[in-house]
Write a protein that binds this DNA or RNA. Structure first.
Lengths: 234, 234
DNA sequence: CGTTTCGTTGATGAGGTTCAAGACCAGTGG
DNA sequence: CCACTGGTCTTGAACCTCATCAACGAAACG
């Protein structure tokens, strides 16, 4: 089963929901009306099926992307072909924007984890915009800063926390409640979450079952948390 | 032994060597003469002794830094007080610049791994500069992009490679030779290298000794490599 | 209703951490 | 010059976490 880098389904027209997602991106928020128009001229909307590869490592980097719906995983391969996820991007997340002023080639692979809609930005056009319009530059800097901090968090978490701790942390992040019971609906498959946390799917499964003793129960994608503060002590 | 966040030794005058390092930074290269002057006005040079803490996580982030000499480690603590290195910065590296348009508080700790000289940039001043001068913005974006790519590399490496592979990769990066024998002088203590690679010092030691069978010998900080291409196949 | 993908569970082993002990080395002071 | 000291590094042993492989059950999907 070869995951090919096939032509994407272009849809010239952007629907309202996707547009709303795009506009609330840190990338677009804070742009002046003028720059916003220019930025939108650099965008193409594309829809891709699950498992489709968006780009591969070492391909010429002509575009960067913003996820409008669905999820995209960024990953790298080692020589034996094993994959390791670097980041999982959901609605509102941009990726590969680090190449606007970085390398000329993609440095990792990107694949749709499920059916997805993407905004595709012309790298050259945005680069020019960034050099001329302070608000565009500011948006890019904010975005890069945020991603850098997230990546550093990721390194620290991998090195400091065990599997159950990482799962607990993920759950706590996705349910902004101080204490007491809560429930979280995973927005994607568990295998994707596993990769996100740097775990094999089996390890995620075991981490969940080890969290049962602190009152976490899992049924499909629905996670029930008995007491949020108990989870925080893991 | 408490590592205190004591006042730094200010030295108003920057020596020529330090100045040369600063000017060759991606941060300063590419700046116009005008912006360069303004940027230099935001800088203070400070010297700090080994083990001195530069800043701590959750302190208000008023400055970011550029290492001129020595090494600084960025790390985070878990609840039990175990430390995990996120990055090690050497001469020419900037750190905490992700907070120019990021958070208002440091997100990790920084400590001198040995006696070091730092350029300290006033965050507010540089933020203003970045918003007004396109060349400053461009320098910051380039710098952030580079760091983001490095951080992503780090995540991928941690998840894909074993200890000997990481050591091999480090050695190969620090000796840009295609094949045959080579030698590398480690620029810092092994314990620092261990942290950099996400390993306990013991694990680094074992990794080195496991590399003996591919012709790597270690004497103090001097690493002799029998055949670079053999090392590349690890 | 079969087929396929996904998730769980068990058994096993590799890779690293931790703890403890000793080797090595440079500096210091008798 | 030697002995002592403090720090760094190495080595061994026990333990732990997690990846891997294989088998099975459960959904999802046509």
């Amino acid at each position: 089963m070869e995951k090919h880098t096939a032509p994407m389904n272009k849809s010239l027209k952007i629907n309202n929901r996707d547009k709303a997602v795009l506009m609330r991106t840190p990338f677009m928020t804070g742009l002046g009306a003028d720059t916003l128009v220019k930025m939108m001229n650099a965008v193409t909307i594309t829809s891709i099926p699950a498992r489709q590869v968006v780009f591969r490592e070492s391909m010429p980097a002509d575009f960067f992307f913003c996820v409008l719906s669905g999820y995209v995983r960024l990953y790298r391969l080692n020589r034996e072909g094993r994959e390791a996820d670097i980041r999982v991007c959901g609605p509102g997340d941009t990726f590969a924007e680090c190449l606007i002023f970085g390398d000329d080639f993609y440095r990792f692979n990107a694949q749709a984890a499920e059916n997805a809609t993407l905004a595709r930005f012309d790298m050259r056009a945005v680069r020019q915009l960034a050099e001329r319009e302070p608000d565009a530059a500011r948006a890019i800097m904010t975005c890069l800063s945020h991603h850098l901090l997230t990546a550093m968090d990721c390194v620290a978490n991998d090195r400091l926390h065990t599997a159950p701790q990482r799962v607990a942390e993920y759950l706590l992040k996705s349910c902004p409640i101080d204490g007491g019971p809560a429930s979280v609906r995973l927005p994607f498959q568990k295998s994707l979450l596993a990769g996100m946390l740097g775990l094999a799917p089996e390890a995620l499964s075991r981490a969940f079952s080890s969290l049962r003793r602190v009152g976490v129960t899992v049924r499909g994608r629905l996670v029930q948390i008995g007491d949020v503060s108990a989870l925080r002590d893991i």
